[in-house]
Design a protein around this nucleic acid. Structure first.
Length: 203
DNA sequence: GCCCAGGTGGGTA
DNA sequence: TACCCACATGGG
């Protein structure tokens, strides 16, 4: 999950799966496996996910942090309290707020809402947005409006991603090339996905 | 051939 | 703080 969270940065998931498959086949889909390989070797394996040199460096940076501070024990890292885990991740090269929250929520199973491009696009179109436009403002809106329940936050985020992918398959020029605008206007999709959840954030 | 995908870091103003 | 740009492959 940690490797997937890093590799999916600005990449299509299908390509990430190929890269993960390469890592698995090379026995490198583990802290020990990645530690044993050089950056160049990792880069060759993750090539399908794009930005392969940059991502190889990021995977190495994560494993180095894990070895130096947690004896290479992923369980020890993920057992940290959510806030502390998030800070440790953010201090690691290549892990920004979205990747950190993905790891906290999906790998550690602790409540931390993930703000991605779909979330901003969909909720902005719905007229729901924080006063500031920064990542932390968006995250605070959802964290303050939803229960601190990891299962619910995973499902909520996953539904947003599914809606975003479905809507973006059809092109629509007035919404950055996607059809979300008309989805929102007709009331299909958005409301069927999150009708009761929208109430939770004051829609 | 062109557009863009569940970002991040470094540099500049 | 607010932009701009590099990073790069693969599918539609």
């Amino acid at each position: 999950m940690v490797a997937g969270a890093i590799l999916t940065q600005s990449a299509a998931w299908g390509n990430v799966e190929k890269a993960l498959g390469n890592l698995r086949a090379a026995g490198a889909l583990s802290p020990e496996g990645l530690h044993a390989l050089g950056e160049g070797e990792i880069a060759a394996l993750v090539r399908p996910s794009g930005y392969y040199n940059a991502k190889a460096r990021k995977l190495k940076a994560f494993v180095e942090m894990l070895c130096e501070r947690f004896g290479g024990d992923l369980g020890r890292l993920l057992a940290l309290p959510a806030d502390e885990l998030r800070q440790v991740l953010l201090a690691t090269h290549g892990i920004g707020p979205e990747t950190a929250d993905s790891i906290v929520l999906y790998a550690a199973g602790q409540p931390s809402f993930v703000i991605d491009a779909y979330t901003r696009r969909i909720f902005s179109r719905l007229g729901i947005a924080p006063s500031g436009d920064g990542y932390d403002a968006w995250r605070a809106l959802f964290m303050e409006s939803l229960p601190a329940d990891a299962r619910l936050l995973k499902e909520y985020h996953a539904l947003i991603v599914r809606l975003g992918k479905d809507a973006c398959r059809k092109r629509e020029p007035r919404c950055g090339g996607c059809v979300l605008a008309s989805v929102c206007e007709t009331g299909r999709g958005v409301r069927s996905v999150a009708a009761q959840d929208l109430q939770a954030i004051g829609a």
